[in-house]
Amino acid sequence: MGLLEIRALKTHYHTVEGIVRAVDEIDLYVERGETLGLVGESGCGKSTVGLSILRLVQPPGRIAGGHMIFDGEDLLLKRQREMEKIRGRKISMVFQNPMSSLNPVFTIREQVAEAIRLHQDISRNEVSSMVVSLLERAGIPDPWNRMKDYPHEYSGGMRQRAMIAMAISCNPLLLIADEPTTSLDVTIQAQILELMKNLKRELKMSTMLITHDLGLVAELCDRVAVMYAGKIVECSDVGTIFKRPVHPYTEALLKATLTTLGTRVREFYSIRGFVPDLISPPRGCRFQPRCDYATDLCSKEPPEVEVDSGHRVCCFRAAQRYLDEA
């Protein structure tokens, strides 16, 4: 049984202009010990998925339906008190911008200690050594002295390490990382990437990596779910997604991704059209207006097809080819 199983999750934002269907009935699962990549561009709803799992969605947003079974229990049925015990302890989250996630008026030591003591009953003396070992694990040099610093005295990379230290302090079962390296420099990003790889090996915790960077996904993730306009369009293991993508959007994303290797590109690939408005998305398949293979069929809700074991796609064309091959 998977660690986290999300079924038919819906999260909507009720704004003045209308209901933004940020997450519109998605199915996802994360196994124990695996890293799932949730990939998509800005506005596709992936960050909302992360917030929904921890039930951190603020009004005017609310979870409108579905089930989130975590470690055997439905998170949507839990009370606030119970969720508070889960957050930081069983499921942690690391955010994109470490500067705004850290309180500027408290030292790093105080903040990591707070994360620890919220969930564990540890004496003050022991907390300090725990903080040091956590910071060390997160790769912060000279932790005994550096923990007395304030966030603004840390560089971006170190702040993110501090956030990671806080997130793993209670050995969570699931870590949700929302664009953890987007605001960092390339070389620092590489360091955090290595850190996350090491932690993955050492702690054997599951991770949900929410990002738009396909390079990160290729290096860190075991499985990938591709999200577009509030829906999951394709989900499979990482090798298949990169080498044998089926959904047109996945194909297009891969074509649009540039690498520093290989020969120079003659013409840059671009997907025509715009990201749809989540208040009134296109009827049927949401990618249809921009899809090179679209047919009339696509104005109906596309079926989910399991083209291979563990490889699911929501696309009429995929369904057709699957039937043809069967």
């Binding site: 390339v186 070389t187 990003q189 590489a190 990437l193 960077d213 396909l214 390079g215 990160l216 996904v217 290729a218 290096e219 990482v238 090798g239 990169f242 080498k243 891969l254 991704t257 690498t259 520093t260 290797l261």
Partner: peptide
Amino acid sequence: AIPVPDPA
């Protein structure tokens, strides 16, 4: 340092 979008 740049992550490579190729899992293999």
